[in-house]
Design a protein around this nucleic acid. Structure first.
Lengths: 356, 356
DNA sequence: CCATAAACTTTACACGCGTCAAAATCATGA
DNA sequence: TCATGATTTTGACGCGTGTAAAGTTTATGG
């Protein structure tokens, strides 16, 4: 009717709406078609070939909703992240989608917008969609324990990036071991220059505290004094660059830390910090003797290498995390109900660049 | 069974699986419940209140798949973008999800991964899901005309960001008018310094050509010679920063364009170009007389203001685009079948910062 | 208190596909 | 050509919810 693309001469294939219709025009029974669609090899080769051929002459799309309703497995996996506008989460989603696609899963993504109410709604929606599992990068504050608990009765749940709020006992987790990653970069920084002070991230998920703790522990082990920069502003928002910029602009304005090594809790904070440094005429730089300002991050944000100076950081194994999470869910969905919660930690790797 | 969150004492509400079950324990008929869920105001206030109260004492999640199967409208909207790892698209998705949520729509997002085959599959999946409409940021090259054409028979389709390949005749489009946006920044650059040369983006969608054309047109109108930098590398990938960096690193290495005003086709290319400049000791800067290197971008990428120097650019109206696209689909889905293709252009606004 | 309309319940069918059992057909080897 | 097992067809039911029709209850107004 609405021939928006009406190109004269382009005769489109006849549209077929239901499998019953299809079975009639194609000349096989509907149950056989059903088997074919679930596994083309499940029917006789000659039949399979016949179906395949006739199918190409026809415009038929299976009904996703109905098929999922009736199968034991929906092959849907829910993904919830606090924000799309964070390249770390974006990278995670991209990798998750890819790993899922390879296993035949469809991803349903929802942003919690940094809001625990929205997060809870998203979890409920996943439940209503009968997903085979869900991957959640949780918000730390005021996470809705009951909602997660109820959901985990219905399907396996895997947390990534950060752990859920402490009220939870045990839960599946796939991510980076902050002790290892922060440890590695603290060690690097101490080895190549002054021991670092720590610039945290807003306390929005478990990583904020875990990374600071990891920093303190490593500094202690290395016999250095741990110093955390006290943010002059309340950092309650996910705008990490703004946070890093504001805090360090304030410090540098008072000529504080202008000669220090600053380890930031993540790259987005570091990007803001670098911007603040630049504004004050400072260009952090590693690899030279005699001190001077250095700034390092955590995550290996895709744009970190385009900063000036290029940001020294530790890279999380994003693909590894995505793949492990999907594998875990796939395994659980296929009846591998070990029931026991699993925690998978992947190593982060140093990315020494210019800034430290 | 798998009491991952088993907190002793936390008695969970009784789980109810079907609406029939619910109707029995709640004391109203199933059809009434059905009406209630579609619109709580559609039943008598006393009944509505009763249902609402009993509902809170029980753990019931409606079956998303089944409800969508039977409603005339699924209230699903498909979204397809070339990549999640591009903050412009990420911003778009975030705004789309928000606008959609307000209208009760659920978003199904898929990345085409810059691959037209994957894009076509995504469109087919949207068809199989019986979405009420789809929003797609298309890939320009070798777009699968037939797939889009078939889809647009089933539901309204809105293209955003860039137009589909030219093989298409007319299609719904919501986005920025490149003539206006590029025109604005060319005018600004000419007014505040040397007329710009143009650094394009890889030819991956219609914007590549459109923006260059817009640049040439505006330069012609202003009586200046249009000059496009010829990339020494083949830019076939979506890694725009790498493209901008490589091309300009090459130029600056030969001491070319080191004193020019460079307008980049988008901010990601500009970020790469700035990095190349910095590497060569160049810090583009506007607002000073007597020439010197200047670099400008297009889109107002969220990190543009954190570059050194902060990137001068034109901001697309991301929220406006998202909202207009959703509104258009909602209107069409509600029977407003004007059938005619609509094109909505939103103005971009100058963001003068430091780099030009 | 009754007439009337609105709201509700009951009953039934529909949606498109998964799945099962029984009957019919096919392919293969002797 | 026939026996045999594998595959397909036929027919039927189920999934959880939307929805329509007909009958019953409830609220409203006089």
């Amino acid at each position: 009717m609405c021939a928006m693309y009406g190109v004269p001469g382009t005769m489109s294939k006849p549209k077929i709406n239901t499998m019953k219709e299809l079975s009639e025009t194609i000349g096989v029974s509907r149950p056989t078609l059903s088997k074919y669609f679930q596994d083309p090899a499940a029917v006789r080769p000659s039949t399979s070939k016949k179906i395949q051929e006739r199918l190409s002459e026809v415009d038929y799309v299976y009904n996703f909703l109905t098929t999922r309703q009736n199968r034991k497995s929906t092959e849907l996996i829910g993904v919830i992240v606090p924000s799309y506008k964070d390249l770390f989460f974006a990278s995670l989603i991209e990798s998750i989608e890819q790993s899922a696609r390879e296993l035949g899963y469809t991803i349903i993504t929802q942003s919690s917008n940094g809001d625990s109410g929205v997060e809870a709604n998203a979890v409920r929606k996943m439940r209503s969609m009968s997903v085979d599992g869900a991957i959640v990068a949780p918000i730390g504050v005021a996470a809705d324990h009951d909602t997660f608990a109820a959901a985990s009765e219905d399907f396996p749940l895997v947390f990534i990036d950060s752990r859920p709020a402490k009220s939870m006992t045990v839960a599946n987790f796939v991510g980076t071991d902050n002790t290892q990653s922060i440890g590695a970069i603290v060690e690097y920084l101490c080895r190549t220059g002054d021991p670092p002070v720590f610039l945290g991230m807003p306390d929005l998920n478990a990583n904020a505290q875990e990374r600071e703790d990891a920093y303190r522990a490593k500094m202690l082990a290395l016999n250095h004094e741990a110093i955390a920069i006290e943010p002059a502003v309340a950092g309650g928002s996910w705008e990490f660059e703004a946070f890093g910029y504001t805090v360090m602009d304030d410090c540098f304005g008072r000529r504080e830390f202008t000669n220090s090594t600053i380890l930031c809790a993540n790259d987005r904070v570091a990007i803001g910090a670098i911007r603040a440094a630049n504004k004050h005429g400072l260009f952090p730089r590693g690899g030279i003797a005699g001190g001077g300002l250095r700034i390092a991050g955590h995550d290996d944000h895709p744009l970190s290498q385009y900063m000036t100076p290029a940001l020294t950081t530790v890279a999380q194994d994003v693909e590894g995390i995505a793949d492990a999470a999907i594998q875990l869910l796939a395994q659980r969905a296929r009846g591998g109900r070990s029931a026991e919660a699993v925690e998978v930690f992947l190593d982060a790797t140093m990315k020494p660049r210019e800034s430290a």
